[in-house]
């Protein structure tokens, strides 16, 4: 269910229709997604929840253009993604989406600053501009003091914040986080969720996958999945202004 204040006033940032993801063939076929429809509008903060094997990670990988669907349509910011070739997809990943992973996925032996600059470099942004935007993103996540540290010299919480800075630096339309707190302690989890609030309050769309209720409770909209299907889609009353 979509926040009624947003619906139909703007173009949806995400529109997925009849998404099917099948692994294997014939009798051995397993449906990770069995026909999912989902629409998300700009400025929403959505948590996709479900037990493991419910298909939420598969959905996230498809939303992030990291994986392809067996069947279905996917429009991101009005652009049809499912029929794009690899080169066009790399541009979409770089410009439209900021991805945050459970295991951080920073480039090893590379400083925080260089990690944040990397997606900007792939977009061909000039060095000075890149440096400026990376420093600003690191400032937003509160890591201005640690820009020269390599991933191994940072705590889990700090690494995840570098990853958030990397995702923000490209000014994406959409921030996708796949179990972002899965590898963090409770203090870092709270810090990260506060950061997500701050990012969403600034107007950016945030989609979080999680199986933790306290993470889900911070979102404004909760989508629950089971066996490759959406079983509920509710607004989080306490969080919607």
């Amino acid at each position: 269910m979509v926040d009624p204040t947003l619906e139909s006033t703007t173009q949806p940032i995400i529109r997925v229709a009849g998404a099917v993801k099948r692994y294997g063939e014939g009798d051995a076929a397993i449906f990770a997604l069995a026909g999912v429809d989902l629409t998300i509008y700009p400025g929403e903060y959505v948590a996709i929840m479900g037990p493991s094997g419910s298909g939420k990670s598969t959905l996230m990988n498809i939303l992030g253009a990291l994986d392809n669907m067996t069947k279905g349509k996917y429009f991101l910011d009005g652009i049809e993604i499912d029929s794009m070739d690899e080169n066009a997809l790399s541009i979409v990943r770089g410009r439209k989406i900021g991805f945050i992973f459970q295991s951080f996925n920073l480039i090893p032996r590379t400083t925080a600053l260089a990690n944040v600059e990397l997606p900007l470099a792939y977009q061909g942004i000039k060095k000075d501009e890149r440096r400026k935007r990376a420093l600003k993103a690191l400032d937003v996540v509160g890591l201005s003091e640690r820009i020269d540290h390599e991933p191994t010299e940072l705590s889990g919480g700090q690494q995840q914040r570098v990853a958030v800075a990397r995702a923000l630096a490209t000014r994406p339309a959409l921030l996708l986080a796949d179990e972002p707190t899965g590898a963090l302690d409770s203090k870092s989890t709270q810090d990260l969720l506060d950061l997500f609030d701050q990012i969403n309050n600034a107007g950016r769309t945030v989609v979080v996958i999680t199986h933790e209720d306290d993470v889900g409770s911070r979102a404004k909209r909760v989508v629950r999945m089971r066996d490759g299907l959406i079983i509920s889609d509710t607004l989080n009353k306490g969080r919607v202004a």
Binding site: I91, L118, Y122
Partner: peptide, 16 residues
């Protein structure tokens, strides 16, 4: 390979 995956996920084109 994992690093290549990360690079691609944040928008590295195949050519790069």
């Amino acid at each position: 390979t994992r690093e290549i995956g990360i690079r691609k996920a944040i928008g590295a084109p195949k050519g790069a």
